[in-house]
Each structure stands twice: as C-alpha cells, then as structure tokens.
C-alpha cells in the first residue's frame, strides 16, 4: 500500500487537476453556479423545519440549525458516494489507453465534494453567528478532526463502490437505494436522544439499541457534528396523548473513537480492494 500511495503522490497534480475540472464542470452551464450546492440544503432544511415544528409538534428552539449541522455532513457523504460510483466507468476510454493511478478518479470526486462541504460549513457559520446568534463553542476546534475521519470513511467506500461499478453496473442503483434508506438511520431529522428513548424495546434494551445505532460510523459522526457545533438541547415532542421530553445526552467519546477507527479501517480495506482489481479495469469489454 505504501508504494501505491507514493505513486499516487507522484500524480498529485493530476488529482488536483481532476478536482478542479470536476468543480468547474458541475456548474458550468448554470447561472447560479456554486450557490446551487447551498440552495439544496437550505430548501430541504426549511421544509423539514416546517414539517417537524408545525406538523409533528417538535418543540426545539433553532431546530433548523440542528438539522443543518447534521444535514451538511450527510449531503457530503451522499453526493460524494453517488459521484464517485460513476467516476471510473465515465473515464473508461481514458483508463484503457493511458497509464495513471486509477484511484485518482474516485478520490477526485470525493475531494471535489469535500471542497463543497467546507464552503457550505463556512456559510453555516455565517448563519449561526448572524441569524441564530449562538456563541461558538470551544469544541468547534474538533471540527477538522471529524471532517478528516469522515473523508477517510467516504474515500474508502468510494474506492469500493467505483471499482465494483466497473464490473457490475447494478452497484450505483444499490448505492442510491441504500443511501435513501440510510437517511432514516442517521440523526438528521430527529435526534440521537430520541433513539435512546425509542419505544421499540423495553427500557433495559434501550442502551443497546443506542449503542448499535452508533456503531454505524456515519451515524456517530453526525451525532458528533451536532454536539460539537451546537449547545446541548432538550427536545420536546407534543404527541397526541402526551408530551415527551428528551434530555440531552453527553457526547460518547468511546463511540466516537470507535467510529474514527472504523473509518480508518474502511479506508485501508477499500484501498486494498481497489488496488487488487484496478489493473483489470482496462480489460472490461
């Protein structure tokens, strides 16, 4: 793997050029350009806020800020995986003719989305300071750590997905369905505290369900984004029968460490998987 990484470093200029090309191409023919990548989360969050506050009866001050804090990382995860699934296949003619480390293709798709994510985070901070008026927490300093491990996780998955998609084009459909379902298994529209108090199990099992839920690294990372970016909050839901209150739980550092470790392992396994098959790409008819 070290040799592969060294060769990748030799081709860093190609990787960077691909990233720039991806960014340039995406909004080339639209008037609003980059703002489209902000409009999508903002509109989504506006709709979610109306539905959950007015219809579902969640009582949370600044609900939209909490949704956004988890939705932006989710968008990064989702669009990076979808973009990279096609990345190798889209350039198969080039792959068949020119030597270059094949991993630059999925990695460029991931990095282009990382840049979008960072820009969206900057806009989020403007919103947070200007509109919500919330003071920045000291834990915001951990943000780069979360972004780093999330990027490793995404890169590992992208390497696997883009490789499989060369051989089986069903992959991209499976990924797209998987992501749609996954959206409900991560804390974007609801809070991890509500998972803890989920009524699908007896009280002694609640702790285990909470644990299992957060063993999914992307779910844990999103809970962590919320907790480091925004102050703890007590969620109230006014149901038909009774009013429920979910007190804020502290950050589970042990689970976060597990999520980071899993991300590293996923990246290493994904890269090994990709390397084992990358010289068969050109043989695909």
């Amino acid at each position: 793997m070290l040799n592969e990484l060294r060769e990748l470093y030799r081709y860093r200029e190609l990787l960077w050029t691909l990233v720039l090309r991806e960014l340039r191409v995406r909004y080339k023919n639209s008037y609003l350009g980059f703002f489209w990548s902000l409009i999508v989360p903002l509109v989504t969050v506006a709709v979610l806020t109306i539905v959950f506050k007015r219809v579902m009866g969640m009582v949370i001050p600044n609900y939209s800020a909490y949704v956004l804090a988890a939705f932006l990382p989710w968008m990064y995860f989702q669009t990076a995986l979808l973009d990279s699934s096609q990345s190798v296949l889209a350039q198969i003619q080039l792959v068949k003719k020119v030597y270059f480390p094949r991993e630059v293709l999925p990695l460029a798709a991931v990095l282009a989305n990382l840049i979008h994510f960072v820009l969206a985070l900057l806009v989020f901070f403007v919103y947070l300071l200007g509109y919500v008026g919330a003071p920045l927490l000291p834990s915001v300093a951990l943000l780069p750590v979360l972004v780093f491990f999330q990027t490793l996780l995404i890169a590992g998955l992208s390497l696997i997905i883009s490789c499989l998609n060369v051989f089986y084009e069903d992959t991209k459909y499976i990924v797209s369905i998987g992501l749609q379902l996954m959206f409900y298994l991560v804390p974007v529209i609801y809070f991890s505290e509500q998972v803890y108090h989920a009524q699908i199990a007896s009280p002694e099992w609640q702790r285990w369900i909470y644990l299992l839920y957060h063993l999914n690294p992307i779910a844990m990372l999103m809970t962590a984004y919320r907790k480091i970016l925004l102050p703890p909050i007590t969620v109230q839901q006014i149901g038909a029968v009774q009013k429920q209150t979910f007190a804020s739980l502290p950050m589970d550092w042990g689970l976060l460490a597990v999520a980071c470790a899993v991300s590293v392992v996923v990246f290493m396994l994904g890269y090994a998987f990709f390397n084992k098959r990358k010289w068969d790409f050109a043989e695909q008819p």
Partner: peptide, 11 residues
C-alpha cells in the same frame, strides 16, 4: 488517444 478521448465537451 483516439478521437475525443480525455476531452470534456463543456470545457
């Protein structure tokens, strides 16, 4: 390279 390989039409 063969015709158009490696070229992006929008660029």
């Amino acid at each position: 390279l063969q015709l158009g390989v490696g070229f992006h039409p929008d660029l």
